[in-house]
Design a protein around this nucleic acid. Structure first.
Lengths: 246, 246
DNA sequence: CGCTGCCTTGAAGGCAGTCAAGCGTTGTGG
DNA sequence: CCACAACGCTTGACTGCCTTCAAGGCAGCG
């Protein structure tokens, strides 16, 4: 047994200011999963063995892929499109725990039923892996275990960032960080280039993702327009100058 | 390629009421990790191989085990005591992402640096596993990969529950759910029996865990006392009748 | 004893929610 | 082609929950 030295508590007495919103507009926000998960998927034979057990399926906007309580028979990865992972409280209050984009996995659980709802935000192609095959692979191929260990480390860290965002930041900061995160994720992707990003989800989704109301989201977007931080050429499009947003 | 059928959106138009707080007081809350992680640790030889690379260390209240940015050289599991995982915003606002209790792991990351701070809430004994050895084990023994896959599934689900709790529930509901969760976790443990639970953390910790302020936490506890839902025999002790709390 | 840290309590204020109405777009059917 | 309904988004006025600010109490400890 080793005995560890004591140490001091961190100080904290600063209040949220305009500077905080400024900071929210700068990358990087996330402390752990800065690189996209796709990077961990591309190389090597691990992917190949995984691909063998997977099959593609397409879904349309509004489709429900999995529901809370459904038997967890598949795990999924997103090839294209966008999805939302939803949790509902017993009385119907809604929360979007994450938006799923190409490279993301979902449906991972050790239980026999899914614990969340996943719906399609923008037409999507998914890979489905039968759970039985997936677990067999997990039990025999350590590299697959390692791959998913990494995937889940990244997700866990992202969720921790989200808890901080929602519990300790103002509405404006949440909105700003959300827009920057979306823009980063979509850089040169299907939904955006460097300085223009399409937001396939509606205001209600954004609100439930950030723990706000539709009205507040609407007001915040207007406010960011007034501050010349963003522009909204169309209702679903968020256009920003590089200099300001990064 | 299979084509999936569309389906309907869930309804939701109910407002938080007294009934919601009632509901917060009932178990089970969590949808995925109801059984303690210890259960997944006890049986089989997986644990044995893990134990071989681990060594115990004791810490005192107030100690810092890991800091953001420290080289991630170990992963840890809690044997006894209680810890808090802390994240700070750039300007010092604090958030406790989780309380760590016997059976919990922390320090798991695929990066070379820790992304959070972990401090001791109540004197603790930990197991430390050198990262190098741990990863070697992970790369060779699929059962270890499977074990941690399960561990992380549970944590991920717990974090999702937390996001719902913080983003969509009232202060009173958060407080009630927190107390019930602590009581459940401590049932017949070191910090509690069936109807009395010790809360080793201070008000400030509870506040930063629930996304509230110390003052609000204090007022809520008083309110729950007035409602005869809890009693506070001492400042750190939370005493409830079985009938009401479950 | 006084100091320090933690907790409580009260009063006032503000941020985001609630309620309500109106606008614009899309889609449907006459 | 237009009327109309449905839906999502915006805007304004008001409310209320929780925070902020401030002061005081209590226990532990040098």
């Amino acid at each position: 047994m080793t005995r560890m030295p004591a140490s001091q508590q961190p100080l904290r007495d600063v209040q949220p200011t305009e500077e905080c919103v400024e900071r929210s507009l700068r990358r990087p926000q996330s402390s752990d999963c800065a690189e996209p998960l796709l990077a961990t998927l591309r190389p090597g034979s691990t992917t190949a063995r995984l691909q063998q057990i997977g099959s593609a399926a397409t879904y349309r906007r509004g489709d429900t892929v999995i529901r809370t309580g459904d038997p967890a028979e598949y795990i999924f990865s997103v090839v294209s499109g966008m999805l939302r992972a939803v949790r509902l409280t017993a009385d119907g209050r809604r929360c979007i725990t994450r938006f799923l984009m190409p490279g993301d996995f979902f449906g991972l659980t050790q239980r026999d039923k899914y614990s969340q709802i996943v719906e399609i935000v923008a037409d999507a192609t998914l890979n489905r892996y039968p759970r039985r095959d997936f677990e067999a692979l997990l039990d025999t191929d350590a590299r697959v275990g390692r791959l998913f260990f990494n995937v889940m480390c990244g997700e866990l860290s992202a969720m921790q960032d989200r808890v901080v965002l929602i519990s300790r930041k103002t509405a404006l900061e949440r909105m700003a960080e959300f827009l920057v995160a979306m823009a980063d994720r979509h850089r040169d992707g299907m939904y955006g280039n460097g300085n223009e990003t399409e937001l396939p989800m509606n205001r209600s989704d954004v609100a439930d993702y950030l723990g706000l109301t539709v009205e507040t989201v609407s007001r915040l977007l207007k406010q960011l327009c007034r501050l010349r931080i963003i522009a909204l050429p169309s209702i679903r499009r968020d256009c920003r100058s590089q200099a300001r947003s990064t």
